[in-house]
Amino acid sequence: MTARESILSRVAAAQRTARLPARPVAEPMAAATRSRSHCLERFGQELAALGVGCHVETTAEAVRERVRCLVEGQRVLSWDAEHLPYEAGAVLTAASRGSSPRAEQAAAEVGVTGCDGAIAETGTLALLSGRGRSRAVSLLPPVHVAIVRPEDLCFSMGEFFARHGARMSQEPSCTFVTGPSRTADIELTLTLGVHGPGRVVVVIGPEPA
């Protein structure tokens, strides 16, 4: 008998004798949703509490200008241009991409991504993986700049799952980023940027016309 068979048969037998307590009676909860403006406000509050810089721009041009300022003079690693909203790729022509040599990616000082969803309740960015949207961009550089479209805002994680379940089942990974990398392992002292980016900046653009 293989390990698989013997584990499964033991588990099946155990289920029959298991003395599990009665299950609590509770009605399932609907995923929490809120209006766009409520989401924007809450998202901003949560980002502030996490120490994430947040810039709200009213035109696509202003978004590009903001991104340009944020990365100026630094080595940039970014998602491929076609995955960045507001044509922000136009100001990142010299950037390394997920397809660049790894040493080059590792040397980048700032990473620029879009996002597939932003969760207002917790100030979270949702990043689905895929070609041209390398996971390393939001991970290797010490600074992560994320460009968010207001229409990507969800109120809760549940709402994000409901809206993007189908796409999530296509992509090998989905990463939720909530603020800068942190640890409190040494005497509970908060330290930022231990492995991932120590600084996260969000640029929110205008609603589609």
């Binding site: 993986s129 390398s134 390393a136 089942s169 090998p172 990974s173 939720f176 909530t178 409190a184």
Partner: peptide
């Protein structure tokens, strides 16, 4: 665990990289 609303990173992994993916 730590009193956070959610941890900094929550990673959902479904499988290995597909042809054409740059990492994973």
């Amino acid at each position: 665990a730590t009193g956070q609303k959610i941890t900094t990173y929550t990673t959902l992994l479904r499988g290995p990289r597909r042809p054409g993916d740059e990492c994973g």
